[in-house]
């Protein structure tokens, strides 16, 4: 187990290093040194930029250094929680971000949880009552859920909420709690708003998960040992719970590798549409204002979130399934 853990940890760190290089390349993509383009943009608007500020920024990002040193400056800055300097706000991003990082994690985590909690019973029901009306209905609903893009779903829900209740659902915290320290009331406020984006982001993932669980369970149910068990007189419920369900659950956890990137993707665009207080809108505005250092930092944050989540799911899977930890994860 520990060798497996060690190896998995090593690959994760390597993956993160590769990703950080990729993200840094993206930061460097726009032509020209981005600070000079920023300055020229400011000057074209007739604003004067103080020389000290320029010098400060140059030093901060090490823009005079060779590329690989710039990369190191950026990465070590990230490691210390320094996300860069926001031009739009004119202050270090850390001051702008506030609770956004935490809320991003909470949002993604709850979405994954939602997908599991909803798809599990539905998947089991669909598989054990194959070709019933319930199965057809749920399959159809699932297909619709799979095909409706989540940001359009967000738009529709916002429209309906506006028409029916006359309120805006585009928030994650009540305004009075923003920039307040965390308290029980604040947590409750987040929880009461969380469910709408969670449903919006989770719908397609849930639909996909139901399909997969149903297919897996159907495969298991046709196997010989199930027939034997039934022939020997095991009660249906016990028969289902004891073996096939456990086998069918395996992909439930291993699939998080596909699920997590899509959930994170979805949460970015849904947050941007509903202007939730997560990192999504900041990433978008940074990209729109061509502030690539800031955008790169957030991109990296999202990637770390995904890779870390996948690492945790792999560890969980190895704990559940001895075949994986013994063969060194080759079976994935």
């Amino acid at each position: 187990m520990f060798t497996y853990l060690g190896r998995r940890l090593l690959t994760m760190v390597l993956t993160l290093v590769v990703i950080s290089v990729l993200v840094f390349i993206i930061i460097q993509l726009p032509p020209g040194d981005y600070l000079s383009s920023y300055i020229s943009e400011l000057q074209s608007q007739g604003e004067q930029v103080a020389q000290e500020k320029i010098d400060f920024l140059r030093r901060q990002y090490g823009l005079d250094l060779p590329l690989y040193q710039q990369y190191l400056v950026w990465v070590f800055g990230l490691l210390q929680g320094d996300f860069g300097y926001s031009f739009a706000h004119g202050q270090p991003v850390t001051d702008v971000v506030g609770d956004r990082l935490l809320l991003t994690v909470v949002l993604n985590f709850s979405t994954i949880l939602f997908i599991y909690v909803v798809s599990f019973p539905i998947g089991v029901y669909s598989a054990t009552r194959q070709y019933s009306w319930g199965d057809y209905g749920l399959t159809f609903l699932g297909l619709i859920g799979l095909a409706t893009p989540n940001f359009l779903l967000a738009l529709i829900l916002m429209y309906l909420a506006n028409v029916w209740f006359g309120t805006s659902i585009g928030t994650l915290i009540d305004p009075e709690y923003i920039n307040e320290p965390w308290s029980f009331a604040k947590a409750m406020s987040v929880l009461s708003h969380l469910w709408i984006p969670v449903i919006v982001i989770g719908t397609s993932g849930t639909a996909a998960m139901i399909r997969r669980l149903r297919a897996n369970l159907l495969d298991e149910l046709q196997k010989q040992y199930v027939v034997t068990g039934r022939a020997k007189g095991l009660p249906e419920g016990r028969l289902l719970l004891k073996y096939p369900l456990r086998m069918a659950l395996n992909p439930f956890i291993s699939d998080i590798g596909n699920l997590l990137p899509s959930v994170v993707s979805g949460s970015v665009i849904v947050s941007a549409v509903m202007s939730l207080q997560t990192t999504g809108p900041i990433l978008l505005s940074a990209l729109q204002s061509q502030d690539f250092y800031l955008a790169g930092s957030f991109l990296m944050f999202l990637a770390v979130l995904t890779v870390l989540g996948m690492f945790l799911s792999d560890v969980l899977l190895a704990m559940l399934d001895p075949r994986i930890r013994l063969s060194g994860g080759q079976s994935r």
């Binding site: 993509l29 590798g257 596909n258 729109q288 990637a303």
Partner: peptide
């Protein structure tokens, strides 16, 4: 295999967003 793993573990949409924002 390694390249595929790295690419698959990245959230697609933010990456698309960053790349298309980088178009001149």
């Amino acid at each position: 295999q390694r390249i595929i793993e790295v690419l698959r573990s990245l959230p697609e949409l933010p990456l698309w967003m960053a790349l298309s924002a980088a178009l001149p």
